[in-house]
Design a protein around this nucleic acid. Structure first.
Lengths: 357, 357
DNA sequence: TTGAAAGCGCTAACAC
DNA sequence: GTGTTAGCGCTTTCAA
C-alpha cells in the first residue's frame, strides 16, 4: 500500500552510523564483523524490512544466479514435467528460472536467445527448434554455456541431455513384433527433429532384428498443426484422420506405434469407429505415458519418459559447465568435447499390445 | 568458445573516441545525436557484437522489465496453457518471465515471494497456495503489484483473474440434471481452494433450481496426493478408487461431476470394470476439456476453461497496475479497490451425458 | 551535438 | 573490526 522505497544497505548504515561496507559484510555473514555489530545490523535490517537487491549484487558479482530455459511448448506434458524438474533442481542450487517459449519458431528462438544474453543468465537449457544454430553459437561465445535438452541440434556441438529414443522405439517395436505384428506403422509429427529421427531408426532396427525388411514398416507423418499459440493444447484430431485411413487398409497382424500418446488416442477412436478391436485386430503402443494412458480402454502400452531425471541431469551438467573450463580454467583435463547423456526410457506394457493371436 | 568479456558501451566509446553517454544515446535512438555519429556507433556496436546489459539498465531505471509467475504445478494442463499465454502476452509488451513453482507448499511460496522481491520484478502473477497472505502483503507493500490467477486468496484484497467456476459447475450440473439424474456426486481434491468452493456452490445451486435438496448431491474428496514433486504428473488413481466405491452404491439415475477431467477418467475405468455403462447407467462430466476428453469412449462432457484469455487478461491487468496509482499517482479516480474478472467457461456437451432414459 | 559528473545498490580490495 | 575507495554497466541531469 505504501509504495515506499525499498530499504538499502545505506539506510541501515545511516541508521546505525556504520559504513555500508560493514553492513554488507554483517548481512553476508562474513567474519570480519563483531558479534555485537552483526546483531544490531540484523535487527535494523529486520526493522526496515530490508531485502537485498539481487540485480545490484549480480551486476558486481558478474553472475546472474539465473538460468534460462527455452521451451517449445509447455503444454506438451513431457515439457511441463521438465519445467518442474528443472525449476526444482535449479532452486536447490540457488538459481532462478527465466522461462522462454518459442512455439517451435526459429524467429522466436532468436529473439529469446538475444534476450537471455541481455540478462546475462549464467547458463541456458534449451529444447531447440530445428535449423538455426548461430544464436546459440553467439550465446556460447559470450561465455554462456548451453545445454540442449531432449532434442539434438546438428551443427552445434553442444552438450545434450535427452532420452534414448532409439532404444525406446526399438524395444516398443519389439513388443509389437513379439505380439505377432508383421505390418507396422509408426506415426510421428515433425520428422526432422532428432527424437523422431532416432525413433525411426529404432523402429527399423527392430524390424531388421525380427527378420522383416523395411517395407514391413511405414512411417506416417501427422501434419504439423501450427497451433495459433502453444496455449492451445495438443489435439489428437490429425492422428484420428490417419487412423481412419489406416483402418481401411490394414489387415490382421498390424500394429501402430505412435510417437506420442495423443496420437495413439486419435488412432484408438478411429479404430473403434471402424470396428477394429485393440489389440485383437491391431496392437497399439505410444510414447510418453501420459496420465491418461493407463486409463484408456484398453490401457495403452507406452514408453515412460524419464522427465524428472532428464531435467535434473541437464541442470547438473549445466552447473558443471558454468563452473567449468571456460570460467575457471581449472581442471579441464577430464571432459572436453560435448557430453551427451541419453537416459533410458521404460516400455510399460499394457493391454493394448497383449492380444492373443 | 572464446569466453571474452562482453563488450560494453565503454568499449564502443573508446574505440570511437566518444563519451559513453553519446554512445548510449546513439544506441537508444535518442535525438541529440548526429546522424553520422549514430551510424559509426551502430557499426562499431555490431562489429563488437555488443549486447546491452539489462541488469545495469534495470538497476538505474528501477524497472526489471520482468514479471514473476508463481504456479503450483506446471503439469496441470490448465496451468501449462496459462504459462504459455502469459509468456506470450508478456513478451509482446517487452517483459520477460521469471517462473517459480510452489508445488502447493506455502513454505515454497514464501521463499519464492522473497526471491521475487530480491529480483525486484515489476509485478507478480500468482496462483496462490491457500493459507498465508503475509508474503504477498509484503510484496505489495514494497510496491510490486500482485494479481491472483485462477484462485482467490481470502484475506488478501488483491486483484483476481480467474474462471467463473460457480457458473460452470452450475451449468454442468444442469446438464446432468436435464439428462435425468437425481442423485449426483461431485468429485474434488482440495476442498478449500476457491475454485472448488465455487464449484460446490454452483453444484448446489443447480440442485436447488431443479427442485432437489442438498441431500441429492454429495461432494466427495479425492485425497490430496502429495506428489513427490510436481514433475510427477496427475494420476487418476485416487478417483478410480472413488469410482469403485461409488459403483457399489449408486443406482440408475446417478451422475458424477468431476472437478478435473483426470478424475472423470478414473471414474470411467471404475465404472467400466463394474459393468456400469456411461451414460446409460451413470452420466459423467468433467472440468478442463483436456485434450483427451473428446477422445474417450464415450467422449466426455466437460467444461472448457479459457486458459488463454485468463492469461492474457491477467497480464493486461498487471500491466495496468504496474503503471497505475501507486507508481504514477496519476488518474486514480477510476478504479480503486481490487478488480476481479471471472471469465466464463463453456460446457462442451458430449456423449457421456447424453443418455436417453 | 557532445561530454563530465553523479548515481542506481552492491561487493571487493586495501588501508587503518 | 571497520571505513575508504573504486567500480560493475548503464542512464540522466546539466554544462559546454
Amino acid at each position: 500500500m505504501t509504495p515506499r522505497r525499498r530499504a538499502t544497505l545505506r539506510d541501515i548504515a545511516a541508521a546505525l552510523d556504520l559504513s555500508v561496507n560493514t553492513v554488507s559484510r554483517a548481512l553476508a555473514g562474513k567474519d570480519a564483523v563483531s558479534p555485537d555489530t552483526r546483531e544490531r545490523v540484523q535487527a535494523e535490517a529486520d526493522r526496515l524490512g530490508y531485502v537485498p537487491n539481487s540485480m545490484a549484487r549480480s551486476l558486481v558479482l558478474r553472475n546472474a544466479m539465473t538460468i534460462g530455459l527455452v521451451i517449445t511448448n509447455p503444454s506438451n506434458p513431457f515439457y511441463a514435467r521438465l519445467i518442474s524438474a528443472i525449476e526444482e533442481r535449479g532452486r536447490v542450487h540457488g538459481y532462478s528460472l527465466m522461462l522462454m517459449v518459442t512455439e517451435d519458431s526459429v524467429e522466436n528462438e532468436r529473439r529469446v536467445a538475444e534476450e537471455l544474453m541481455r540478462w546475462g543468465v549464467d547458463g541456458v537449457l534449451a529444447v531447440p527448434v530445428q535449423h538455426g544454430t548461430e544464436h546459440w553459437e553467439r550465446l556460447r561465445k559470450s561465455g554462456t554455456p548451453v545445454v540442449l535438452v531432449n532434442r539434438d541440434l546438428p551443427g552445434l556441438d553442444a552438450d545434450l541431455v535427452g532420452v534414448d529414443y532409439f532404444e525406446s522405439a526399438r524395444r516398443a517395436t519389439g513388443v509389437l513384433l513379439d505380439g505377432g505384428a508383421r505390418e507396422l506403422c509408426l506415426i510421428e509429427e515433425d520428422l526432422d527433429i532428432s527424437p523422431v529421427a532416432e525413433r525411426i531408426r529404432g523402429f527399423h532396427a527392430a524390424l531388421g532384428e525380427h527378420g522383416l525388411d523395411e517395407a514391413a514398416g511405414t512411417v506416417t507423418r501427422v501434419p504439423t498443426r501450427r497451433r495459433e499459440s502453444s496455449s492451445q493444447p495438443w489435439d489428437p484430431i490429425d492422428s484420428y484422420a490417419i487412423g481412419r485411413d489406416l483402418a481401411r487398409r490394414i489387415g490382421p497382424g498390424s500394429a501402430v506405434l505412435a510417437g506420442n500418446d495423443y496420437f495413439a488416442l486419435g488412432v484408438y477412436r478411429a479404430f473403434s469407429e471402424q470396428g477394429l478391436s485393440i489389440p485383437g485386430d491391431v496392437a497399439v503402443a505410444g510414447h510418453g505415458d501420459h496420465p491418461f494412458a493407463a486409463y484408456l480402454d484398453p490401457p495403452l502400452t507406452t514408453v515412460r519418459l524419464p522427465a524428472g531425471r532428464v531435467g535434473a541431469t541437464a541442470v547438473d551438467l549445466l552447473l558443471e559447465r558454468m563452473s567449468g573450463p571456460d570460467a575457471a580454467g581449472g581442471a579441464e583435463a577430464a571432459e572436453r568435447g560435448p557430453q551427451r547423456a541419453l537416459l533410458p526410457a521404460e516400455v510399460v506394457v499394457r493391454a493394448s499390445t497383449m492380444g492373443e493371436r
